[in-house]
Design a protein around this nucleic acid. Structure first.
Lengths: 198, 198
DNA sequence: CGTAAAACCTAATGGTCGTAGGCAAAAGGC
DNA sequence: GCCTTTTGCCTACGACCATTAGGTTTTACG
């Protein structure tokens, strides 16, 4: 009986493909075993548990998207960079919904620190540097961008925008532009009056 | 043997409580049956399936939050209304993480239409009316607000903001204010130059 | 070529969803 | 107040999943 040649990496990759096909929530040890024509018990030689498997899928997605995003942003600045980054997220999510869902899995802080998550943050900060925000405002902006990108794509994927006009593509472009405008004006408020709530 | 007095409503309510305690993903027919000191099979008299149960929890959450948000927004306008709405979402999510997660369950379009989801949209539009945006821009703005609120709270709940300064509360206030600024300036671009991507 | 580690297997436990069919409690007719 | 019907919950079961224990085959290496 020829061996399947399983490794943790191949399982994570296969799990990611499976997630894109049937949804991340539906990924299961048994299902992945079927895909590799192997018995479920065999997977436990390479991954600790079902949760471990899912975390590995998340790491794959995090790394892939970080690569894509870096490439897309390279050589662009300001609004073009912002759009490139946003589009990386959105396109990746459309092409790989299961992987994108996996990315939102809550990782324990140690795994999160070793992951490519920080790369995403650094990439955003690199773009924001051009808007010349203060230190704290840069962090706020990172959080804003992350929230809006993630939130928009989630709502879009869950179908929330598909039952009304105008098309989601149009809204997306307006929102990217809006964020750019907001970032441009952000610093202006800084030297002026009190920065807290009115 | 005294009867438990189950109904679909009580099960949805109990499911919502269970979700807040152990997480929405962990809600199970068997677990809910234990909570009501009843056998799993008994629940199927009141709900069609596990998926049906979860959908009912989502409807409960959608309705509860719509009530809260309406109340919070009443009598406020512009930035105050925006902040009240955002805080409704955020506070609800913090107090009821399981219910909040349930709200993001993908409902089939018929159920979604009957749900209180549209109330959320109407409430946002009511606030946005004061910013005097165009018809299409109002839709874009609804999508922006929904995305940002949902995305921010999700990232916050998943712990993404808890490992760095400044505190999430501060970012939240800045982001609400930023959105207000953005909405104020949104219309300005309207009469000016071309509205598409530069 | 033989040995030992590595890769995969069988088997078993215990959890989940969901269906079928039984029994007992509550509700309604008389 | 008794009898019948509906309703609510139960037992029993089949199918699937996660996970562990322990056995067997394959491969690598000395």
């Amino acid at each position: 009986m020829a061996r399947a040649g399983l490794t943790a990496e191949r399982l994570a990759q296969g799990g990611a493909d499976l997630a894109d096909e049937i949804g991340f929530e539906q990924v299961t040890v048994a299902g992945l075993a079927r895909r590799f024509k192997v018995k479920p018990a065999s997977l436990y030689f390479h991954v600790k548990s079902s949760a471990d498997l899912k975390a590995r899928v998340a790491l794959v997605a995090l790394a892939e998207l970080a690569d894509r995003a870096s490439e897309a942003v390279a050589g662009r600045s300001r609004e073009a960079a912002l759009a490139a980054l946003g589009n990386s997220y959105r396109n990746y999510a459309h092409e790989h919904p299961g992987r994108f869902a996996a990315m939102q899995l809550r990782l324990d802080s140690e795994t999160a620190a070793r992951s490519d998550g920080p790369r995403h943050t650094r990439l955003m900060r690199a773009i924001l540097r051009e808007y010349e925000l203060g230190e704290a405002d840069q962090t706020h902006a990172v959080r804003l961008l992350g929230s809006t990108f993630q939130g928009y794509v989630n709502l879009e994927l869950s179908g929330s925008f598909s039952h009304s006009e105008p098309s989601s593509n149009v809204s997306w472009e307006h929102i990217i532009h809006g964020l750019h405008i907001l970032l441009q004006n952000w610093q202006v408020r800084q030297p002026g009056a009190a920065n807290d709530r009115e």
